[in-house]
Amino acid sequence: MDGFLITVLSNIGMISFVALSAYILLLSGQISFGQQAYFGIGAYVAGIATVMWSWPLAAALVLGAFVAGAAAGLVGLVTLRLSGIYFAMATLAFAEIMRIAAELFVYRREIGGIETGPDGIDGFRDIRYLFANDISPFQSCLIVYALLVAVLATLFIVERTRGGRMLRQVGEDPLLAEVNGIDVMRVRIAAALSAGAVAGLGGGLYAHLLTYVEPRSFDIMLGVHALAYGLIGGLGTALGPLLGVLIDIGLLESTRVFRGYRMIVFGGLVAVLLIVRPRGLLDEVAISRIRQALRRWRHAGD
């Protein structure tokens, strides 16, 4: 495979984590503009762990996801009783605070004779773990997709459990869910926590694959894009957000046909698409039709 294709595939994989993160919150009925904050936290924490503390990559990624999830849970505690635009604004405010904090964050140390570490607005450069350990771009792409498949599998399994049904019910009608004896706040905090961890995992991968991360990498654009991916791709299945990422990065950013006009095409496309399908291409109705068709096909085979 050539280098360009691998880069595009890795990008699609990494951005998918943020898209899935926004999707988990959308399922719980909350719109977050701020999932990029946890992406950034994961990126910085995981980067610091491998570069400054010489941790192995796996442990660093786990730490990044853990810290991001914990932060998301804490933010959730104070913001999740808000809803709609209030919640969206609170998450955006937190993400912008984190981004500016990263601009002010300097933590430099000498490692192996070279001074390194996060350097304020210039970001955190030379995260050379993959390079130093002879992991090729193709192998790192495989790591990204292995983790993505793991997250997806977890989501699919959870969606089939009681917890997953509770999540959708809370998203569709919190009052009804409450009447049915569901602890809405607890479900929402659990959703926020796991969404934060998923975004943090993606951030950790991002920092290592690109070898750098800067405050600008997780500005509001990333957050709103992540949200849009779920809504274009569809809210019926965890594959929806992935389809959204694939359409945007795979089709528009990476093919050169639309160079210079990508956003004009993408913007118009999304606006029109949402008129036709307000819950995305793979919405709940489409998913249940596909399931039915699959079932019929299976019975026909018997």
């Binding site: 719109i31 969206a88 709103v224 949200l227 849009a228 809504l231 274009i232 210079g260 006009y261 990508r262 956003m263 004009i264 993408f266 913007g267 118009g268 496309l269 999304v270 606006a271 949402l274 008129i275």
Partner: peptide, 13 residues
């Protein structure tokens, strides 16, 4: 809201 964000991108470009 998402549609308006899409148009944001479009208008800016």
């Amino acid at each position: 809201m998402v549609a308006s964000f899409a148009l944001w991108m479009q208008i800016e470009e």
